[in-house]
Amino acid sequence: MEVARYWRTTKQRYQLVGEKCPQCGRRIFPPRDVCPVCGHEARTAVQFSGKGEVYSYSVVHVAPEGYEKFVPYIVALVRLAEGPLVTAQLTDVDESEVWIGMPVEMVTRVLREDGERGMLIYGYKFRPALPVNNQAPQAAAQPMRTPLPKANGVHPEPVLQAAMP
């Protein structure tokens, strides 16, 4: 098992915590400790808003080990509102509904499973941005929309509602 390996990146994966360069002000995600623009050391942690838009996308049909049960799934490059691009899956959306420029927001979901008795790895995915002024209190009280079960009998991925610690 590789518990420590995943544990040490939980802030990035659960909360989208990156860095800010104290020299040039650039927001950096994923965190890399040295600003890619000015070369200054950048260790000031910053939480990103999780808002962004689709820069490009594709669909994975032949998955790597640990991702087989999720196929087909949509992968994307998302341009975060703060500037950086991030690689992530899109969720709660059908491929035919995705377009370049589509507004999206971050959610926390299961990324991979290491077998029946192995670890569940959680992390960020992005879904179509929900309207902000549309009965927000009721919407928050309702369960998050879950994708319909696939026709081939594969169950939808588990949905994590609360932010992870």
């Binding site: 490009s56 996308y57 998955a63 799934y73 992968v75 690689t87 899956q89 990324l111 992390g123």
Partner: peptide
């Protein structure tokens, strides 16, 4: 870790 494959990385570039 996001489930990206080598093919899909190139697909992202090609679509863009």
């Amino acid at each position: 870790l996001q489930g990206l494959t080598f093919v899909s990385i190139n697909a992202l570039l090609m679509r863009r």
